[in-house]
């Protein structure tokens, strides 16, 4: 899976970092999301989905690989 982050929508609430710090970080500058690992391994899929779900501003989305 690939994570897409729209820093234009991000409000820097940090929920993604709390949920999964290995994948998400925040810029020191304006607090917006920084993807440490935009294509995390499948083993992290559940935690990534949870982080996306928790994001209050709708800044995060997932591109799932085509089936098969």
């Amino acid at each position: 899976m690939r994570i897409v982050a729209d820093t234009g929508r991000c409000i820097g609430a940090g929920m993604c970092v709390l949920a999964l710090g290995e994948v998400f970080d925040q810029s020191e500058d304006d607090g917006t999301v920084v993807l440490l690992d935009p294509e995390p391994p499948a083993s992290k899929a559940a935690e990534v989905r949870r982080a996306v779900q928790l994001c209050p501003s709708g800044a995060l989305s997932l591109v799932e690989p085509p089936p098969g």
């Binding site: 409000i11 709390l18 925040q26 020191e28 304006d30 607090g31």
Partner: peptide
């Protein structure tokens, strides 16, 4: 809102 929030969010990050 965005303008102010951007100026402050960097000060309230998890880190």
């Amino acid at each position: 809102h965005t303008r102010y929030r951007r100026l402050l969010a960097g000060q309230f990050t998890v880190r």
